[in-house]
Structures are given as C-alpha cells and as structure tokens.
C-alpha cells in the first residue's frame, strides 16, 4: 500500500471556538468529529493505511475490534472527497 498524504488544497487545524479540528479549503470548512481528526492527524505523507491503523492502535489500546473497519471507511470517504491522496 502507498503512503497517504493530505491534499495540499486542504489545511487541518484545531479551532478553539468550535472545540474541534476542522479542514479548511478555499472558502469552505468541514468540522471533523474526534475520530476523523485522529485519523487525519496520522496522514503525514509517510504512513500507508496499515501503518496508520497500527499507530492508532498504539495510541488507543482500548479501542474496539472494529476500529480497523472504521478507519478503512473513513479513508475511503476522505479519498473520494479528495481530502487525501495515495502515493
């Protein structure tokens, strides 16, 4: 699998006033829920999806079994939305 990167059109940042991470892009904004934010924070241009899952497992050892599937779902959705690119 190839490494995932954030599309340079988008910017990920924490917003105090909204108490959440947001994705910013030309004239728009997406509010992220906590798990989406955790996943995107791992998207650094070096890790592939397996490595991202491993990193999140290490960070959240008590996370339920189906976390892997949730991550896969989110990655698919984020790819479709063009937020992240592969390779």
């Amino acid at each position: 699998m190839s490494a995932l990167s954030l599309n340079p059109l988008y910017r990920l940042q924490f917003e105090k006033a909204q108490d959440c991470y947001v994705l910013l892009f030309p004239e728009g904004m997406v509010k992220l829920n906590p798990s989406a934010a955790e996943i995107l924070l791992q998207v650094d241009g070096n890790k592939d999806e397996t490595a991202i899952v491993a990193a999140l497992r290490a960070k959240f050892p008590d996370a339920p079994e189906d976390m892997d599937a949730d991550i896969a779902d989110f990655v698919a959705k984020a790819t479709e939305n063009n937020w992240i690119t592969h390779g």
Partner: peptide, 8 residues
C-alpha cells in the same frame, strides 16, 4: 478571538 476562521 471571537472564533472566525475563514477570511476573505
């Protein structure tokens, strides 16, 4: 300070 994040 009020929370605005997009600025045109």
């Amino acid at each position: 300070e009020l929370g605005a994040v997009q600025l045109g």
